[in-house]
């Protein structure tokens, strides 16, 4: 009796997660139908976002999300791989432990703090260096890169650490240097895991709100240069959700949320189900 009850209790809880995910999609879809019916595909391809005349095109925000994430990946991938190599192959065991744990702890610092640092400390420097406002696509990309770096380095290191010692030793036994072993054995061996980890980091970066809200500018324009202020989907949501005054405005914001959810779902699913699963099988 109690046995069945307990089993059902656990089963219902497990189903709840499926239910919630489905529910999220349904709710976001329903809420955004008005915008979709009004604008159709223009919602995704037009960049005019003018609440005063009830015109909403998400292109600038989508572009900003993709561009800032791309920039962040461009900056953080080489450094993260460098850090991962340092942590898994070069550092003295004592340093390895200390740096390894600090990297993991830094990954736990709330992203809003990266945003505050960006606004108060980094943007002024960028302003002095480049002229202009400082706030914009470049600032967002850099702050995002720094925010994602600890997570990226930690998961990349974990992927590299899956290479069996004996395989590395065989390459050393043939007269390989550390770098030979890294590039010919560790990276090819852990390739799927490393790529999966990087894409997973990308999935996180694209949905990141607080690290970029401070420094992006929230201007609904496709940026003309890397220094222009622009916006991204999460930034728009964070800034405008409580300001929306018409139902079409609301619906458009929900449309943005749905777009973001689908984008990140796809990215994370590719990382998890293609690369990381392949890595686990190997």
């Amino acid at each position: 009796m109690i046995d069945k009850l307990f089993q059902n209790l656990t089963r219902i809880s497990a189903f709840l997660i499926l239910l919630i995910v489905a529910w999220i999609f349904v709710v976001l879809f329903n809420q955004s139908t008005e915008a979709m019916q009004t604008f159709g595909l223009d919602f995704l391809t037009k960049d005019e976002w003018a609440p005063n005349v009830d015109k909403f095109g998400a292109y600038a925000a989508i572009f900003g999300s993709v561009a800032s994430t791309f920039l962040a990946m461009l900056l953080s991938i080489p450094i993260a791989i460098g850090v991962a190599i340092f942590l898994s192959e070069i550092a003295h065991p004592k340093i390895k432990g200390f740096f390894g744990v600090s990297v993991e702890l830094l990954a736990a610092i709330p992203s809003v703090i990266y945003g505050m640092w960006g606004l108060f400390y980094f943007v002024p420097i960028l302003r002095d260096l480049t002229g202009g406002m400082g706030i914009g696509l470049l600032a967002a990309g850099i702050v995002l890169a720094i925010m994602i770096l600890p997570f990226m380095a930690a998961v990349t290191r974990d992927a590299m650490n899956t290479t069996p010692d004996i395989l590395k030793e065989s390459a050393y036994a043939l007269g390989g240097t550390q770098w030979d072993v890294i590039k010919d054995v560790i990276i090819p061996y852990a390739k799927a895991g490393i790529i999966g980890s990087l894409i997973l980091a990308l999935g996180r970066a694209i949905g990141e709100t607080m690290a970029v809200t401070f420094v992006m500018g929230n201007v609904h324009k496709v940026p003309t240069s890397i220094l222009s202020p622009t916006t991204s989907i999460p930034v728009t949501l964070a800034n405008e959700f409580t300001e929306a005054d018409t139902s079409l405005y609301f619906s458009s914001l929900f449309g943005l949320a749905l777009t973001l959810l689908i984008m990140s779902f796809v990215v994370i699913a590719v990382a998890k189900f293609y690369f990381l699963r392949k890595a686990r099988r190997a």
Partner: peptide
């Protein structure tokens, strides 16, 4: 790993 702001929405 889903964007937390979407959960808020």
């Amino acid at each position: 790993s889903a964007p937390s702001i979407v959960i808020g929405a």
